[in-house]
């Protein structure tokens, strides 16, 4: 069951990753997004596929091969994501179909694909999978994981240890550095609930909110955002000087989670941060000009996240 063809974690340049689009963007918008990322964005790897809600899957299914082809032609490594919480038969079939694909990298978002992947098939592990300790990381590496994106809530000390362990095992460790932070997933659709609808007759109201729907406290402070069955932070994480720390730990890949702003510009800012051309203050100043309508926050790793995040800013 062990695949010894893991990608070496020691690289001269860190990898910049465009994560999967978590929100319900119209098919045309998604096609345009991938086309622009293919042609213009300085990223090494691009994730495609629906993570949050299987009801959205059919809308982009016929456009997906073209998006993959275009990204591949542009020299990007393409990774197809599996659903995060498959429970229905068609959701299991969707994951099974993905697990059976040859010639593409896949990322697991729960343990379902591991029952379906052929022995020896390599895979990436998303931040939605619980990898908190060396035992779990080691098990995944032995089972064929070549990249493990660490969970959002990990404290700095854990990131440091797991990055070192990843290097020892010869696999990449990855961290989310930009975008609203996914905090929870449920069987219940909150978008539908807020609109007085049920999940089964949701009318796809989540398509009205390309960055998610804000959930404010009764004091009018930004707190959370809902995206169908998913709950995210209100603030958009924008790591700055933390990047240097993470590079020092040996974190090999840095994930940008798409929001409805100029993600090509965001990628350029993070490429410069990774190269050491910008410091955190410079990056933050430039992120003010990418058309992002969300407050900026810092990664949860700091342990003082709520206090320093833009999440506490009044709207």
């Amino acid at each position: 069951m062990t695949d010894m063809t893991n990608t070496p974690a020691t690289r001269s340049t860190p990898t910049l990753v465009m994560g999967p689009v978590l929100f319900n963007w119209a098919p045309e918008r998604l096609s345009d997004f991938y086309a622009r990322i293919a042609d213009e964005a300085d990223v090494d790897r691009v994730h495609v596929g629906e993570v949050v809600c299987s009801k959205r899957e059919p809308f982009f299914a016929d456009r997906l091969p073209e998006a993959i082809e275009r990204l591949t032609r542009a020299g990007k490594t393409v990774v197809v994501d599996a659903l995060a919480l498959p429970t229905l038969k068609r959701e299991r079939q969707s994951v099974a179909a993905l697990a059976g694909l040859d010639g593409v990298e896949i990322e697991i978002n729960d343990m379902t694909p591991l029952a379906l992947l052929p022995a020896g098939r390599r895979f990436a592990v998303s931040p939605l999978v619980n990898v908190y300790d060396e035992g779990t990381l080691g098990w995944f590496a032995a089972r064929g994981a070549w990249s493990v994106a660490l969970p959002y809530e990990l404290p700095t000390a854990s990131i440091e240890r797991l990055a070192a362990e990843g290097a020892r095992l010869g696999i990449e460790t990855q961290l989310h550095v930009f975008g609203r932070v996914p905090l929870a997933i449920s069987g219940r659709c909150y978008h539908a609930r807020v609109h007085g609808l049920a999940k089964d007759s949701c009318q796809f109201v989540c398509n009205q909110d390309p960055d998610g729907l804000e959930v404010d406290t009764l004091d009018g402070e930004g707190f959370l955002a809902v995206n169908g069955v998913q709950t995210l932070s209100d603030a958009c994480t924008a790591a700055g000087d933390e990047i240097a720390t993470l590079l020092g730990f040996g974190v090999g890949a840095f994930r940008l989670s798409p929001q409805s702003c100029d993600m090509v510009a965001v990628a350029a800012i993070y490429r410069a941060l990774l190269a050491g051309s910008f410091d955190g203050a410079e990056a933050r100043a430039r992120l003010g000009a990418v058309g992002l309508a969300l407050p900026l926050g810092v990664p949860m790793m700091s342990g003082s996240w709520p206090a320093t995040a833009g999440a506490a800013s009044p709207r």
Binding site: N130, P155, T231, G303, W305
Partner: peptide, 21 residues
């Protein structure tokens, strides 16, 4: 729990303390 258990960091987000950790 209304969220899938073990996959919820809401408490972490507000307090730094979570069920998982």
């Amino acid at each position: 729990c209304v969220m899938a258990e073990g996959r919820c960091s809401l408490s972490s987000h507000a307090t730094g303390k979570s069920p998982n950790m």
